[in-house]
């Protein structure tokens, strides 16, 4: 099979986009984990669910800011949503950037409400009347629909890259969306483990369920990473993701290995907090690898 030909110019999506991909992934992944804990977790894990919703919204806040700052004309950010030609709404189902803009807006609503509910449950007094927001049938449906949007935000960025004519991105067309979903879940689980470790004095303990979930997500990510390399190798563009990018690959692999190191290390008390940080760095390195290598 001859290698794929690419003559496309680089869009120069760089640091703002990297920031969005990382924070958006964590926001979507955290929300999904929050809902998972709420629906399937042990009673003792429920404080982690609140923490996940809070982390999700806090991670989401910089996302629209990063995206707006990346635009050449930041004041025209609303052109993503409104057709300035006819004044109507602008939605193109075949353009991931257009779909993603709407998804980000809607996920923001779900994340914000769940954030308020989580704060209320945590005892924030002005929000006391919202304590039941995340509970009951409404809370379940809200969390489930929000999770769909959250996972979409985590993964559509991979599809956005794939729907192009760039080397690597378009060559790994069917893998990138899944790879971004899996790495977002793994990264979010790692961040929650790190925060839970720091806040253990507040009654948020390290959950065995979350540790196990983190490992499962890492296995899923590893499988997709292998598929990613295979797909660019078949297209003849694997050389673009190797070479100088080997440093990032090392961080990615360490990040994948970190969840399995927990429990095998003895001694230093900083290790349980440090391993999730390594996983988180792996998430950042993976996004950086995919974004920058294709444009080099």
């Amino acid at each position: 099979m001859p290698p794929a030909e690419h003559f496309a110019a680089a869009p120069h999506w760089e640091w703002w986009i990297l920031g969005y991909f990382v924070f958006g992934g964590i926001a979507g992944g955290s929300y999904a984990i929050g809902t998972l804990i709420r629906l399937a977790g042990a009673p003792a894990d429920q404080p982690l669910s609140r923490l996940a919703y809070i982390v999700s919204f806090l991670a989401l806040i910089p996302c629209p800011i990063f995206l707006t700052l990346d635009l050449g004309q930041p004041l025209r950010f609303y052109h993503m949503l409104i057709d300035v030609g006819d004044g109507g709404l602008n939605f193109k189902s075949w353009s991931p950037m257009s779909v993603g803009s709407w998804a980000l807006l809607l996920f923001g609503l779900f994340s914000f409400v769940s954030f308020l509910g989580a704060l209320a449950e945590g005892g924030t007094r002005p929000l006391a009347s919202l304590r039941g927001l995340g509970r009951g049938a409404f809370g379940t449906i809200w969390g489930a629909v929000g999770t769909v949007f959250g996972l979409f935000i985590a993964g559509y960025t991979g599809v956005l890259l794939a729907v192009s004519n760039q080397a690597v991105w378009s060559d790994a067309g069917w893998v990138l969306g899944g790879l971004f979903v899996a790495s977002s879940l793994a990264g979010a689980a790692a961040l929650l483990l790190a925060v839970a470790h720091w806040r253990r004095a507040d009654g948020i303990g390290t959950s065995p369920g979350l540790v196990a979930a983190d490992r499962n997500f890492a296995i899923l990510e590893a499988i997709l990473l292998v598929l990613f390399v295979a797909s660019v190798a078949v297209a003849g563009t694997v050389g673009k993701v190797l070479g100088v990018w080997i440093v990032l690959w090392i961080v990615v692999i360490l990040g994948l290995a970190a969840p399995f190191m927990a429990g095998r290390t003895r001694g230093a008390s900083w290790v349980p907090a440090a391993l999730p940080i390594v996983s988180l760095l792996g998430l950042i390195a993976l996004r950086a690898l995919v974004i920058f290598s294709a444009q080099s």
């Binding site: 399937a40 996972l151 559509y156 969306g177 369920g209 979930a213 997500f217 296995i219």
Partner: peptide, 19 residues
């Protein structure tokens, strides 16, 4: 792309529920 993302999301949710 979306199909790959959806299948992974479902797999991730199942992996999370099991854990």
């Amino acid at each position: 792309g979306y199909l790959g993302g959806a299948v992974t999301a479902i797999a991730g949710l199942i992996a999370g529920v099991l854990a």
